[in-house]
Amino acid sequence: MADPYLRVEGLVKRFGPFTALGGVDLEVFPGEVHCLLGDNGAGKSTLIKTLAGVHEPTDGKIYIEGKPVEFRSPRDASDAGIGTVYQDLAINQLLSVTRNFFMGRELKGPLGTLRMDEMNMIAHDEMLKIGIDFSDPTQAVGTMSGGQRQTLAIARAIYFGAKVLILDEPTSALGQKQQMGVLKTIKKVRARGDIAIIFITHNEIHSRLVGDRFTFLALGQTIGAGTNAEIGDEEMRRLMSGGAEMGDLEQELAAI
């Protein structure tokens, strides 16, 4: 098996007295979808924000292609090939698809002017590659559906050199059909083979559909990990509810 592109060892993050992450390990491989699962407050957001360079870890190591790295800013992380697609997508609704696509990394001509035609073409082509044919990239993003916005954010991250794509609950807050559209996009990115995907979700079915490997978090700790084949449905449900026995919960519910 190939080496992991990104490896996290004993990652600890404390905010004052509060321990958000208490020693998390994670390995993500190119061409694989690594599902990060866990209940609210399990530390998923803190983990990805640390990987994205938003937070500096209190302790523990992050390795990229075997080399230890330290991120002091989101720029550092994105330069190292970590592309994060946040839940709110970091998108400006009133601006065009193209302007959003190239936000902060605009193509400039000799006089500092924007190479608008070229940027329009690239934005269109890159989005087509992972599944949507958005005919007019000069349209405002406000006119796009939630699923299309996800695709825009993913295409943007890949185009600007993401080797690890972190998707923060990309299917929540979407309709059924659009959720499937996003899963299709994830599959297409996976099929390229050179990009490692970290897929954060609450949804068991979605993670089953696209995931190769799972890591379960609860209260800032890794409580389980394994490949799709290794983890059975029962086990998965148990880990997703934070390790509590589903049977216990059922009894508790029945007692009310």
Partner: peptide, 24 residues
């Protein structure tokens, strides 16, 4: 309408956090 700074000005007013996340 034609420069990077212009793009940044619009983005700053539209969604400041999104602009910041993209390095503006």
């Amino acid at each position: 309408s034609r420069t990077q700074i212009g793009n940044w000005i619009y983005a700053t007013g539209d969604n400041k956090e999104a602009a910041r996340a993209n390095g503006v």
